[in-house]
Amino acid sequence: MPARPAISWSTVALLLGLVLLAAASFISLPLNWKALASLEAIRTTKEFLLGFARLDTSAGFLRKLATGTAETLAMSALGTLLAALAGLLLALPASGRAGPAARLPVRMVLNVFRSIPELVWASMLLIAAGLGPFAGTLALALHTAGVLGRLFADAMENTPALPETSLRLNGASSLAAFLYAVLPQAAPQMLSYTLYRWENNIRAAAVLGVVGAGGLGQMLKYHLSLFQMPQAASVIVAMLLMVAAVDGVSFWMRRGMMR
Rank of each mutant, 00 (worst) to 15 (best):
A238R: 02
M75P: 01
R150D: 05
V19T: 06
A232S: 11
L125M: 13
L78D: 06
D247K: 00
A244D: 03
S123H: 05
I127G: 13
R197H: 09
A83G: 08
G214M: 11
A128P: 02
W33Y: 14
R43S: 11
Y180A: 14
L110F: 02
L65M: 03
G209N: 05
A91I: 04
L14T: 08
A53E: 11
A135G: 06
D247I: 00
N111Y: 05
A213V: 11
L240P: 01
L65W: 02
G136E: 02
L14E: 08
F61N: 01
S250A: 15
S95I: 13
H223D: 13
T194Y: 10
L183P: 04
A176L: 14
V207P: 05
P5I: 07
N201D: 01
S173M: 11
A23R: 12
E71A: 03
L131H: 12
L90F: 04
F48E: 02
A23V: 06
F61G: 07
L20P: 05
M124F: 14
N158T: 13
V182A: 12
A128K: 08
R254H: 07
L179K: 13
A245S: 13
A94V: 09
I236V: 14
L104P: 03
F61D: 01
G68Q: 03
L31Y: 03
R255C: 04
R97A: 12
L21R: 01
W33L: 15
R254P: 03
F52Y: 05
F26Y: 05
P163G: 13
M156A: 06
A22N: 07
I27K: 14
Y196W: 05
M190A: 07
F52K: 03
L92S: 04
L224M: 14
R254G: 08
F113H: 01
V147P: 09
R197F: 08
L110D: 09
V12W: 03
S174H: 10
S225A: 15
P133D: 01
L31F: 03
F61E: 01
E118M: 10
V235R: 00
A53G: 03
T45E: 04
Q231M: 14
A181D: 12
R150P: 01
A122K: 10
K221T: 15
F26N: 04
L85N: 01
A22W: 10
S28T: 08
I27A: 14
M1S: 11
N32M: 02
A22E: 09
R97N: 10
V147M: 14
G79F: 02
R254M: 07
S115K: 06
A186V: 10
A153H: 02
L65H: 00
M219R: 01
T165V: 10
G68A: 15
L78H: 05
L110G: 02
R97D: 07
S115N: 13
W252F: 10
L39R: 06
V237H: 09
S95N: 07
A206S: 15
A13F: 05
P105Y: 07
I27S: 12
R103F: 12
M1R: 13
A53P: 00
L216K: 04
S115F: 08
L131D: 12
A177I: 06
F113M: 15
A37P: 00
L240V: 12
I116R: 10
E157K: 10
V207N: 04
W9E: 13
A101V: 14
M75E: 00
G171Y: 11
A70Y: 03
G209E: 08
